[in-house]
Structures are given as structure tokens and as C-alpha cells.
Design a protein around this nucleic acid. Structure first.
Ligand SMILES: [Mn+2]
Ligand SMILES: [Mn+2]
Ligand SMILES: [Zn+2]
Ligand SMILES: [Zn+2]
Lengths: 138, 138
DNA sequence: ATTAATTTTGCAACAGCGTTGCAAATGAAT
DNA sequence: ATTCATTTGCAACGCTGTTGCAAAATTAAT
């Protein structure tokens, strides 16, 4: 586990620190998306708020994690499963938010449908967020 | 114009105040979605931040306007064109955010596509946010 | 038209999220 | 071990949104 995490950091030319190791392990262990608050709560060692923010930003920049826009105006983060790299994200899958347990899932296998916008509009990226009840809560 | 706005307020059993008249007129005039900051800036008379927040919340509750979740974690508001009522919104259209001018559009004619989630998930609502370049900016 | 009851507003205070500057601590390289 | 570059923690700040409460405005009743 720790080896995998170290490899990811090295591969992205990031120095190995307790903070980065800890946060990246949390993502590896979790099947759900995590918020900043989740990470602060779940971390074994205590890390400063600011450090966590900066680490998350670094991971997003490097293409290690991606952000998930939610309807309640909070930012969730999850591992990139596709081959994302610095400045080039390709996380075009559907996200699901369970209204019962609050869990955000990446539905990595479900691709974003085509959306017909007016012909004088140019589409760069489409985000799909599905709200409902997950398999554990029904 | 003002008559229309007054009718909407009366129809929703809201008392007629300068603040509500002003904000509702802004929405009637605008073809774009508006943020709290937009409203504060565009209002002729000065209204307290808190009053604006409360008015927006009231309008959302009454089904006069709906919120639009955006990727950059800010809330946009736009008039409900469909027949929304207190506690029952039916604003299931696609939203488009122009990366150039920052304008958020309601694409009222473009309905939300079906999304195939895993069969043990229950779908309540689907939000689709398209990012790109609008007709005025290309 | 006055008065009374209800609703709305402004102000002050507060909490949460995220950012920045800077000095101390840590990690990487020699 | 020493040096250099990067990361971290702390303090401070700005922005967004919320709450409590008294004053003002609106509505309803007389
Ligand atoms: Mn995802
Ligand atoms: Mn809309
Ligand atoms: Zn659930
Ligand atoms: Zn535009």
C-alpha cells in the first residue's frame, strides 16, 4: 500500500512527506469521494488546514485526483482512475450523490451522454451529477 | 413590467416591498442567471446583503427562481420558466457556463438526458452543467 | 384615516471555507 | 554533514452565508 503511494508521488516528482503519504493513502483506501473536512477528520496525524488545502491543490494540478462539483456547493475529491496528467484531466464519468448517507460516488463506467446545445455554442466539458439513493441506503 | 412583478408577488402571497420588486425586476430583465453579488451590484437602491439572501431564499422556496450548481462552487439563480410552485420545482433543463464571459444560461429547451446508473441505485434528480464558449464569445 | 398585528428589513455578530505571507521545519542533493 | 529547495504551521485576512434582535415597513382590522 505504502509502496504504491510512494511510487505515485515519485512518478509525479513530488517529495515524500508524511502529509502527502497520509492523504494519498486515505484516497487509496476509500471507495467514496472525500471532502477537505473528511480528510481532516480521517487523518491519523493532525495536519494543518492550510497544508491539506495545498496538498489537495497539488494533487489536482498533477492529475492524481479530480474535483467533483456538488449541488450543495461543497467540493469533493476523488482519485483519477483514467490516465490523467499534469494539466490534462480526462475524468468524464457520471457522479452520484446519495441524499441519505451523503456519499459521493464516481461511476467510472458510465460515460457522459451527448448533450445537444444550440449550434452556435461550443462545448468543452460536460458535468453530470445524479442525486438519489445509493445501493446501501435503499 | 412592474405590474407583472407585482402580480407574481401577490400570486405567491408575498407582501410587496421595494426589495422584492427590485430583485424580481432584475431577473425579468436579465437573460442570464444572476449571482448574489450580481444582484447587489445591479440594484438601483442599496439593499443589505442579508436582505438579498433572504429574498433569494424566499423566491426559491416559492418556486419563482431556481438555483444552478456551478463547477466553481458559486450559486447562480434564474427565473423558473416552467410551472414551479412552493416545494415543487421542475427545472430539468441543461445549464451552460461560458468560460469566456462567465455567463450562465438556462437552456430551457434542452432536456436532461437519461443516465444509466447501476440498477441498485435510485435516481431522484439529474443536473447537467455544460462548460464551453457561448454564441457571443466565439 | 388610525390603530394594531404581522412581516420584512438592517445591523451586528458569528461560523465556515479557502487564500496569502512569512518564518521555521523538513526533505533532497552534494 | 552541509547546503539548497520545498513544504509546513501559524496568523491573518476576505468572502459567503447564517442567526438574533430591534426598528421600520407592510398588511389587516377598526
Ligand atoms: Mn469522479
Ligand atoms: Mn435554469
Ligand atoms: Zn447512500
Ligand atoms: Zn460568453
Amino acid at each position: 500500500m505504502k509502496d504504491v503511494v510512494i511510487d505515485i508521488l515519485k512518478h509525479n516528482q513530488l517529495s515524500i512527506t508524511d502529509n502527502r503519504l497520509g492523504i494519498l493513502e486515505l484516497f487509496q483506501k476509500s471507495s467514496k469521494a472525500l471532502s477537505h473536512a473528511d480528510i481532516e477528520r480521517l487523518s491519523e496525524k493532525h495536519f494543518d488546514r492550510v497544508t491539506i488545502y495545498r496538498t489537495l491543490q497539488t494533487f489536482v494540478d498533477k492529475g492524481i485526483i479530480h474535483t467533483i462539483p456538488t449541488a450543495d456547493n461543497s467540493i469533493m475529491y476523488a482519485l483519477c482512475k483514467e490516465a490523467c496528467s499534469e494539466g490534462h484531466h480526462h475524468d468524464d464519468h457520471v457522479h452520484f450523490l446519495c441524499g441519505q448517507c451523503g456519499t459521493t460516488y464516481c461511476l467510472d463506467n458510465i460515460s457522459i451522454p451527448e448533450v445537444n446545445v444550440p449550434k452556435d455554442f461550443i462545448v468543452h466539458q460536460t458535468n453530470v451529477l445524479v442525486n438519489g439513493v445509493c445501493k446501501n441506503c435503499r
